[in-house]
Computed example of a mutant assay.
Amino acid sequence: MIEGDWPPMVTSRALDLLPSELLARFGHRMDTSLNGDFLEIPVAAEAELLVALRERGFTVTRDDELINTLDGQTFR
C-alpha cells in the first residue's frame, strides 16, 4: 500500500488474492499515477471467472455493498 492510500483499492487486492493463472486469463494489470497497480477484469468475464474460481474450490458470491464498503465508498 502506498502511504496515504487507505483503504487500499479492492482492485489492487485482486493482484494478491487471485491465482496467477486466473490473473493472466481474465485480467489486465493497470497502473495509476498515485495508487499503484490494480487488476482490471472486464464485466463480461465475471461469470466465467466465477466458474473458474469455484472449480478451484473457492466459495464466491457477489456482494456489491461489501465491495463498496471495502473500497471506501461508505466513508464519503
Rank of each mutant, 00 (worst) to 15 (best):
R62I: 14
A44S: 12
F75M: 07
Q73G: 01
N68V: 02
S20A: 15
P8V: 11
S33Q: 12
E55H: 02
L22Q: 04
S20F: 05
L66F: 07
D5P: 00
D71I: 00
T69Q: 14
L39R: 03
A44N: 04
P7R: 04
E65I: 07
P8F: 01
Q73A: 07
I67A: 15
T11C: 09
M1Q: 08
L49E: 09
L17C: 05
V51Y: 05
L22W: 04
M1D: 10
I67G: 06
S20M: 11
S33T: 06
P7W: 09
L39A: 03
I41L: 08
T59K: 14
V60G: 03
D71S: 08
R13P: 01
P8T: 04
M1C: 03
L50M: 14
R54G: 02
L39V: 00
R76L: 12
T32Y: 06
Q73R: 06
D64W: 07
N68P: 00
D37L: 11
F26Q: 08
M30E: 15
A14Q: 10
P7L: 11
D16A: 09
I67Y: 11
I41D: 07
L23E: 01
M30R: 11
A14P: 00
E46V: 04
V43I: 08
S12W: 05
L15Y: 01
Q73N: 04
R25V: 00
R56L: 13
N35D: 09
V60N: 03
G57Y: 14
R25P: 00
L66V: 12
T69A: 13
E46K: 07
F26K: 08
A14E: 07
N35H: 11
F75Y: 07
T74F: 07
L18N: 01
S12L: 03
L39P: 01
A45K: 15
L39N: 04
I67H: 09
T61P: 04
E48Q: 13
P19V: 00
L23D: 00
V10C: 06
D5G: 00
V43R: 14
R62E: 15
R76G: 06
V60R: 04
S20I: 09
I2R: 11
F58S: 12
L70T: 04
L70D: 07
N68I: 02
L53T: 06
L39H: 01
